[in-house]
Amino acid sequence: MTQAAKPLLTGGCQCGAIRFALTAAPIRITICHCRMCQKATGAPFASLAEVARENFAWTHGKPAAFRSSSIAERDFCKACGTPLSYRQDDGTSIEIMTGAFDRPDRVVPTVQLGAESRLGWVGAIANMPSKTTQQIYGAEKLASVFSYQQPDHD
């Protein structure tokens, strides 16, 4: 990413030690159900935005990396543990976890991968009963909570 390019999308880890920016829209945005993504995120699936490496930069801090396979590494914040990316060794792109974006609503998945490992209950999520955070804790308790999480901006 060139210094003169204006960021289109930004994001970072939970504690703010790592920040990143994109200067172009992602190539594709996926949900991956493969077992490796499940383990890497501690979740039933990963949601990833694939970005050409020339349109991506770490703008604050550098992530730690874990070699998750013989062909790829996964980046994460060594301070707070936030999973950040997936990179194939010979690839021209990097895949960024969509939850790490400041505006995850702007990176909407359009395809699912690793369907052989998709958990059977995932398709029913939208129909499950749901509550807001305020409904769970109540307004008074929620007002007393102080988040140590980095705000969704630089």
Rank of each mutant, 00 (worst) to 15 (best):
71 I>Y: 09
29 I>K: 01
27 I>A: 07
53 R>T: 13
68 S>G: 06
62 K>C: 00
65 A>G: 04
46 A>L: 01
66 F>I: 13
34 C>K: 06
72 A>M: 09
27 I>P: 01
25 A>G: 05
22 L>V: 03
27 I>L: 14
73 E>R: 14
20 F>D: 00
24 A>N: 09
51 V>D: 02
68 S>V: 10
26 P>R: 08
32 C>F: 04
53 R>D: 07
48 L>D: 04
52 A>E: 14
29 I>T: 12
56 F>D: 02
56 F>H: 07
21 A>V: 13
22 L>R: 09
60 H>V: 01
53 R>W: 06
51 V>W: 03
67 R>K: 14
36 M>G: 05
68 S>I: 07
39 K>M: 02
55 N>D: 14
41 T>K: 02
73 E>T: 14
27 I>Y: 02
70 S>N: 05
33 H>L: 08
58 W>C: 11
45 F>K: 06
29 I>F: 09
54 E>I: 09
45 F>E: 01
14 Q>V: 11
37 C>Q: 10
48 L>K: 04
29 I>Y: 04
26 P>L: 09
14 Q>C: 12
45 F>Q: 02
26 P>Y: 12
38 Q>K: 15
61 G>Y: 06
14 Q>A: 15
46 A>K: 01
47 S>I: 11
69 S>N: 11
43 A>V: 04
26 P>V: 11
24 A>T: 00
23 T>R: 10
69 S>D: 08
18 I>P: 01
65 A>R: 11
70 S>D: 13
63 P>C: 03
66 F>R: 11
33 H>F: 09
34 C>L: 08
25 A>Q: 14
48 L>Q: 08
30 T>W: 04
25 A>F: 07
39 K>T: 05
30 T>V: 15
41 T>Q: 04
18 I>H: 02
47 S>E: 06
67 R>W: 08
70 S>G: 00
59 T>E: 04
57 A>E: 07
36 M>I: 13
58 W>A: 06
41 T>P: 00
55 N>S: 15
